[in-house]
Write a protein that binds this DNA or RNA. Sequence first.
DNA 1: GTCTATAGATTGATAGAC
DNA 2: GTCTATCAATCTATAGAC
Lengths: 211, 211
Amino acid sequence: MTQVDTKTRILNAAERLFARDGFHSTSLRTLTSLAEVNLAAVNYHYGSKEALLKAVFERRLLPLNEVRKEKLEAVLTAAEQTGLRPAAVELLRAFIEPTLAFRHSGPGAKDFIALIGRSLSEPDETVRNCFIRQVLPIFKILFGALRKALPELPENILLARLQFTLGALSHVMCHAVNRELQIPGFPEPLADKLLVEQLIGFVHAGLEAPC
Amino acid sequence: MTQVDTKTRILNAAERLFARDGFHSTSLRTLTSLAEVNLAAVNYHYGSKEALLKAVFERRLLPLNEVRKEKLEAVLTAAEQTGLRPAAVELLRAFIEPTLAFRHSGPGAKDFIALIGRSLSEPDETVRNCFIRQVLPIFKILFGALRKALPELPENILLARLQFTLGALSHVMCHAVNRELQIPGFPEPLADKLLVEQLIGFVHAGLEAPC
DNA sequence: GTCTATAGATTGATAGAC
DNA sequence: GTCTATCAATCTATAGAC
């Protein structure tokens, strides 16, 4: 592997450290030291620490959202052609599978998944707003698609259940890195593929639970 | 209402600010200013910022865990007397209801609920470990009880589903304070009582989903 | 573009008067 | 117990040489 340039090395280090330690607890000194670049390079290449955060989100979220959007629309289109409702479980799969599959898309991707898993519950507005702004469009698409799949479910109940779904998904994503929940006396965590299937089955059952 | 003493005022301010801004983003200056006590008082009364965090957790978690434990054991005892398995939904209710009902137990309790909702996904080890240490015992009790309710479910699948459950619960708790998820074009969030019932129904359906 | 050096502000913690 | 004053360390950001 050839050397990557300074700007990318900064991005990689930021992704790793923001995921592991959080945005505020990561200092530019630690970050530039890991990236093996000069302290001043962050401000030269990105302008500020906050702009760097935005760049970290964008690098991964733009293509990921594109994939999720395509998959959701494929399910909707197929349903329209048959004249049937789209199946909720297929929509959930279209959203969840690429999100978690993303972990294996290359080095660093796993860190990123943990980072966005945390971002929804991030106390700091800087981070949370930066994240929400980038995921709100795809979230709206998912919500609209699920309304078509479950039209008899009241809207506000669907929204609440979708929030539970995102909570469960976030939690799984958070622990893409930290496996410290392996506690003596507890069984081994599920293998990756199985975990994804279990999550889809879980939220699907919850989403279609009787009112 | 009579004046509360310095030590308690510090605790109240810490609960509020740690929940709203996070542990690391809260400075002792902001904290003591809100509490209207001297800057040096934190170190005098608690020894360090980290010890203060531990005290914030303990004040609420000791009684809450006691209630959850009693309710879980009541379900188990009742089941033993009838010779039947405990019902999963009753165990979930015994755990979730007091957790969320806690929000109305007094001023500040709502902040605390948001704080513990975040703590599971907290990047910082200081906060996360401090929290996990205090909830692991009750988590083990819940897991053991659910094993009795669903003995045919493989242990590692039960654990995964329990994680999804905690993820959904955490997410709801996180937003006990921040209602900023009311976005134009989305329906009104559910009223409190309804939300709790929906959550219990959701995770119950997920937990008992077919394998 | 990369470096050193440092400004300027803020942090957690403490010493010592009262 | 509460106060002021301050230490020593850290932080983000920037100025300016090369």
